[in-house]
């Protein structure tokens, strides 16, 4: 029992999970029905379900972002890719003769995904072949990409009327929101691909010491292409979910600032921005913390004026608590308590 507690305390995930629990408790106090999950119209219904469904796009992007950050990079263009994929999909559906058919939706999704893959390859090209710093390379696409999305929609909001498309964002399968299922699949794919194969280790190697891994024969170039493309793919899928959720392509606002939320989720989850070791489970916890934070603001009724200060407080708290200095201080505090216990056991 004691070792379990000790391991829990020293786990990097302890404080994010603790913060999650605290936020949930605050929500329950403000709204006792927060934790209730009922079945309505044949599907699950409740605040927790909303958090999972609304947080799914951000989680998907955060998964892609985790791998990019692990290689010591960053991808600021994910929001723009979200907007582009939504714009492309809606344009295709609007331009087709039968917007409600599954074939049209499938084509739209496929084209959007292919375009995103190309954009990911472009980012990978800038970073690995030309050698531009990731923050600037992806900043280019972040600026120009939103322009491209607005070009496709000509600045208007394209509303589509297509039940299969709408289902991606707000539909249910087996009682669970489809968006959550998609997120789960992507999480599983990423986890399996990186942890069951050598891929994860190679990614970490590139991030920890690019020069040493180059000399060890690791093909950094291919890996970088892969992670940026995967990140763009994640952004496209998230963009499709976001767009489907409102059944309209809004090139201006879709995915705006989502890259910040995703990076926050990754960092709260324990992955360092300096690259190297990463944790997909940590990212999951981080994403849940952020989404619960957003929901807490609405449930508790925090005035929009104070929302940002509240966010700052939570983020600061998590970071300070997670830091090695705090862990060391807690360790010292626990060690001061321990000798008494050891004496009791000995006698």
């Amino acid at each position: 029992m004691k070792t379990l507690v000790a391991r829990a305390f020293s786990s990097r995930l302890f404080w994010p999970v603790a913060m999650l629990v605290v936020l949930v408790v605050i929500n329950v106090i403000a709204f006792p029905g927060f934790l209730s999950i009922t079945v309505k119209d044949g599907h699950l219904f409740g605040s927790i379900i909303d958090i999972l469904r609304n947080g799914a796009p951000m989680l998907i992007i955060a998964i892609g972002m985790t791998l990019v950050i692990a290689t010591r990079g960053i991808d600021l263009s994910v929001g723009a890719v979200c907007a582009i994929s939504g714009a492309v999909a809606c344009s295709i559906i609007l331009g087709s003769s039968d917007p409600g058919s599954i074939t049209t939706v499938a084509t739209a999704v496929a084209v959007a995904v292919v375009i995103a893959l190309v954009l990911g390859l472009w980012n990978g090209f800038l970073v690995s072949v030309i050698g531009i710093q990731p923050i600037i390379a992806t900043l280019v696409l972040m600026t120009a990409g939103r322009g491209i999305a607005m070009l496709i929609t000509e600045g208007q909001i394209l509303t589509v009327n297509s039940p299969p498309f709408k289902a991606i964002g707000s539909g249910f399968a087996l009682g669970v929101p489809i968006a959550v299922l998609i997120a789960a699949v992507i999480f599983a794919v990423a986890a399996l691909l990186t942890r069951r194969t050598a891929l994860g280790m190679l990614i970490e190697a590139v991030g920890i010491n690019p020069e040493a891994s180059r000399q060890a024969g690791v093909r950094a170039r291919g890996l970088l292409f892969a992670v940026y493309t995967f990140c763009a793919l994640c952004a496209a899928i998230a963009g499709l979910i976001l767009t489907a959720n409102q059944t309209a392509a809004d090139a201006n606002n879709t995915g705006l600032f989502i890259e910040l939320d995703a990076i926050l989720a990754v960092v709260i989850g324990g992955t360092s921005l300096a690259g190297g070791r990463y944790s997909l489970v940590g990212t999951l916890v981080g994403a849940l913390v952020i989404q619960t934070l957003v929901t807490t603001v609405y449930t508790v009724g925090i005035s929009p004026i104070v929302t940002m200060v509240f966010k700052a407080a939570v983020v600061t708290a998590v970071c300070l608590l997670q830091s090695p200095a705090t862990t060391a201080a807690i360790g010292r505090w626990r060690r001061r308590l321990a000798p008494r216990v050891a004496v009791e056991v000995a006698s």
């Binding site: 921005l273 004026i305 600061t316």
Partner: peptide, 21 residues
């Protein structure tokens, strides 16, 4: 506290913007 500069300054950004409102 060895917090990453990206995150520490992001938190400061939220705080400053929040104080503006």
């Amino acid at each position: 506290f060895e917090v990453q500069p990206f995150i520490a300054t992001l938190a400061a950004m939220f705080l400053a913007r929040g104080l503006c409102y």
